[in-house]
Simulated assay, not measured.
Amino acid sequence: MINFNGELLPDTSLFLNQQNRAWRYGDGLFETIRVVNSKIFFWEEHYLRLMASMRILRMEIPMNFTMEYLEGEIGRTISENSLNTAAVRVRLGVYRKPGGLYLPQSRGVEYVIETAPLKNPFYTLEEKGETVELFKDHWVSSGLLSTLKSNNRIINVLASVYADENGYDNCLLLNEKKNVVEAINGNIFLVKGNTIKTPPLSDGCINGVLRKQLIGIISKMEDYTLEEASVSPFELQKSDELFTTNVIRGICPVSAYRKKRFATGVSRNLLAKLNLHVRLGGDNR
C-alpha cells in the first residue's frame, strides 16, 4: 500500500497522470528515511530539511504539514504494510500540484509515501567495500539548488549507468570547478592522518542528514579534526581512507580507486559510534 495525500491505496493504483509536475518538470522533492520498529531515524532533521527545501522552491506548505502529522502518516503507511516491527525504507515525495507550464497554476503540493523492507535493523559495514571512479561526463553545479533532495537527479542516473557499464560499484561526482562533490548515492568523507575531510555545501553536495550526524559525532572525537573544504581529485589517492554515507546504508567504505587501496579502520570506528548514537536516541524520535 502507498499513501497518496492521506489516502491509502494499493501499490498498483493509477493515481498520477501526465499532468504531474514532478514528471513534467522535476518540480518535486523527496526524503529517503530509515525506520526501525516504527521509530523514525533522525526525523527532525528530515522534516526541517524538507520544509527548508519547500520554501526555497517557493512551494506553499499546507497548514497540516506539521512534524506530528507527517510522522503519523508515515506510521500509518508502515502499519498498513505490516512493517511495524521491521526495518523499513520510506520515501516521502512532495511535488507541486498539477497545472501550468513552467509557471505553475498552483503553489500547493501533494505527497506520496512509499515503504519497502530493509534487511538489517542496525547499520552494518559492507566488508567488500566499493570500487569507485570519477564521473567526468557531466558535473554538478555548485550552489544552493544542488544541495536539495530534488527530483532532478539525471546526473546521478547517468553516473549509475556509467558505473554499471564499466564495472564500478559507485562513481564520484564533480562540480564545474572539478572538485569532488559526492558519490552517486551519498556524501563522501576522506581520511588523511588525523584529519577527516568532507566537501562543503557551497560546492554543491547534498545537504545529507547522515552527513550532519557524522559531522556532530566527529567533532566530539579528540583524536580527529573535521574539515569542511573543497576536495581535489588528486587528494583521493593520497588519502588513507574513503567512505560514503546516507541514512539507509549508514557508512560504506571505499575499497579501491584506480590503483589505490584503502583501509577501513575509521569507518568501523565511526559506524560503532553511529549505532550507539542511534540507540541512545540521537536526533531521532
Rank of each mutant, 00 (worst) to 15 (best):
V90L: 01
V90D: 01
Y95H: 10
G108W: 08
N284Q: 06
R279T: 09
F122W: 13
L242C: 01
L118S: 03
A256I: 12
K119W: 00
M1C: 08
A263R: 01
E68P: 13
I40K: 02
T244M: 15
A256Q: 15
E241H: 01
Y257F: 15
Q19M: 06
L134R: 14
G99Y: 07
R279L: 14
I196M: 06
A263N: 04
L16Q: 00
L103P: 04
N156W: 09
E68V: 13
I56L: 13
T198P: 07
V278L: 09
S160P: 05
K128Y: 05
P10D: 10
L134A: 08
E126N: 15
T245F: 03
G216E: 07
G250C: 05
R55A: 10
Q213T: 15
R55N: 08
K39C: 04
K273N: 06
L236C: 08
F15E: 00
S255T: 08
L9V: 01
R24Q: 15
E80K: 15
I74A: 06
T85S: 15
I74R: 02
R211Q: 12
L236S: 04
I206H: 05
S267A: 02
P117T: 07
N284D: 10
P121T: 09
N3Y: 01
L158K: 14
T115P: 04
L9R: 00
M63A: 12
I248L: 08
G281Y: 14
I217R: 03
K136M: 07
I154K: 09
E45S: 10
A116V: 02
T12R: 14
S106T: 11
I248Q: 07
Y95D: 01
S239W: 00
I155H: 12
N246P: 04
A52N: 13
L190I: 10
R261N: 11
E182V: 10
V161Q: 13
K197E: 05
T124E: 13
S219N: 12
D11Q: 12
S53C: 07
M54L: 12
A86F: 03
G108C: 03
M67Y: 11
W43F: 14
E71H: 15
N37E: 07
I74V: 11
A159Y: 11
M54I: 09
G216D: 03
N179P: 05
L8K: 08
V180E: 11
V278P: 00
I56T: 13
G26K: 13
S267D: 00
L9I: 00
G93Q: 13
E235M: 11
V112L: 03
L16D: 00
R55F: 04
L134D: 06
Y257A: 03
G186F: 07
G143V: 11
G265E: 00
K220L: 02
R89K: 15
R107Y: 12
N187A: 03
L172V: 04
K220P: 04
T124Y: 08
T147P: 03
N175L: 06
I215C: 09
Y47L: 05
I206N: 03
F243H: 00
L276N: 14
I184A: 06
E31I: 09
L271S: 02
R268W: 00
N179Q: 13
E176Y: 13
D164N: 15
E7L: 00
I40V: 14
N3V: 00
I2A: 02
Y102L: 12
V94Q: 04
N275D: 01
V278S: 06
P10K: 06
